[in-house]
Design a binder for these strands. Structure first.
Length: 196
DNA sequence: GCGACAG
DNA sequence: ATCTTGTCGC
């Protein structure tokens, strides 16, 4: 399993948090959820949900203004301090290289990774079919992330470094949090808590 | 002026 | 993101 993080790279990481946001009451309420999983068992160890009035519209590139307040509230309710954050959105793969995953990691001084379901910026070629295959996501001459085949036969994921994690490390962590589905377990739990 | 556009 | 039933495929 070449994509698994080396024992050295994952040293100290025991708790990986998945974060996602959902909306209630036709968008008037922002609901942020955090799911803390044990690594590498991926068992849920803690969860938290915070609901706040929505105070900013969705503007591509400015997701932090809309989602970060509720996310910080949810993170503040945790008893467990995560060692790594996986956010449902972009990290480096942002027009200004500061997607919400990077923004949160920087603010909290925690390693973070952006795992988005679609593209904000950048271009890429076809992604090979096998699970684990990936293609670089580039923008203005720089590699800003990777388009990863998390599962054969389904749309790929847009993975990018958030804070204190390299692209290779980001890919390794995402692969290590995947099981049989398109999204990593962290995101699946967070999404379940924030929405469905 | 015309597209593109995380969630 | 959210509003929503049935439907195609493993």
């Amino acid at each position: 399993m070449p994509w698994l993080p080396s024992p050295w790279d994952r040293a100290g990481v025991r708790r990986v948090a998945g974060i996602d946001v959902g909306f209630e009451d036709q968008g008037r309420i922002t609901r942020a959820a955090v799911a803390v999983l044990d690594f590498p068992s991926l068992a849920l160890v803690e969860q938290s949900v915070a609901r706040l009035p929505t105070a900013f519209p969705y503007v591509p590139g400015l997701l932090s203004f809309r989602e970060a307040p509720a996310v910080l509230a949810a993170l503040g309710q945790l008893d467990t301090v995560p060692d790594l954050l996986l956010y449902d959105g972009q990290g480096l793969a942002h027009p200004r290289r500061l997607g919400i995953a990077s923004h949160l990691g920087l603010w909290l001084d925690l390693p973070s990774i952006g795992v988005a379901k679609s593209r904000l910026v950048g271009h890429h070629g076809e992604v090979p079919g096998p699970r684990g295959a990936w293609t670089p996501l580039e923008d203005r001459g720089e590699v800003i992330g990777a388009v990863l085949r998390s599962r054969a036969g389904v749309a790929p994921l847009y993975v990018s470094p958030g804070h204190r994690v390299s692209l290779e490390g980001a890919l390794a962590w995402v692969m290590a949090c995947l099981t049989r589905y398109r999204l990593p377990e962290t995101t699946r739990w967070a999404h379940r808590l924030a929405s469905g």
